[in-house]
Computed example of a mutant assay.
Amino acid sequence: MTRPSEAAASWHQQMVLQETLSLAVPLHIGELRGMSPRALASIASESATTVGSHGDALQFGGKHCAAAFNALARGLAAAALTAPGGVDALGGHWCAAPGCRASSRFDHADTASPEADMPPIPGPRPLADVIRDLTGYQPTWP
């Protein structure tokens, strides 16, 4: 048996991550639904810290891989419940609308609002910006 090329192995890892997130994030959304925005911001902050500290374990494996994966899924779920239109990350889309079949936040932006005075849903933002805004994180570099 020959070893897969580095590109094939990387593609496989990415597909496994996308598929497992497609299952895990909705489970976390169901668990977190109904929590206050403050509690969701706290969860997002904790998740960002864990992923920031052990994100390499997601890529290369190791003893913190499960904790990093769960933190990523939980953080995406917290962001999906608070960001207008949900979040797009790693090839997936998650939002607060149960049963949402949108493929991205752009799909939400095209829907007509029931009330004429409601502003349109803004376009997508990078996940890091959403988490930073939820947690009040301010970078220390210039």
Rank of each mutant, 00 (worst) to 15 (best):
M1W: 08
T2F: 15
T2S: 15
R3K: 10
P4D: 11
H12G: 09
M15D: 12
E19K: 04
E19P: 00
L21K: 03
V25N: 02
L27N: 09
H28T: 00
G30W: 13
R33E: 11
G34R: 05
P37V: 03
S45A: 15
A48P: 00
G52I: 10
H54R: 05
A57M: 09
A57L: 08
F60R: 15
G61E: 06
C65W: 14
A66N: 13
F69Y: 10
F69W: 04
A71N: 00
L72H: 05
A73L: 05
A73R: 00
A73I: 04
R74P: 00
R74G: 02
G75P: 02
A78L: 05
L81K: 07
L81C: 06
A83Y: 04
A83R: 11
A83F: 05
A83L: 05
P84D: 13
P84C: 12
G85F: 01
G86H: 03
A89F: 14
L90E: 14
W94S: 05
G99H: 05
G99I: 04
C100N: 04
C100T: 03
A102R: 02
S104W: 01
F106P: 01
F106I: 13
F106A: 15
T111N: 03
T111V: 10
A112S: 13
P114Q: 12
D117V: 06
P119F: 07
I121A: 01
P122S: 08
P124D: 14
P124C: 09
R125D: 07
R125W: 09
V130H: 03
I131N: 00
R132M: 05
T135A: 15
T135C: 11
G136H: 07
Y137L: 10
Q138R: 14
P139G: 09
W141C: 01
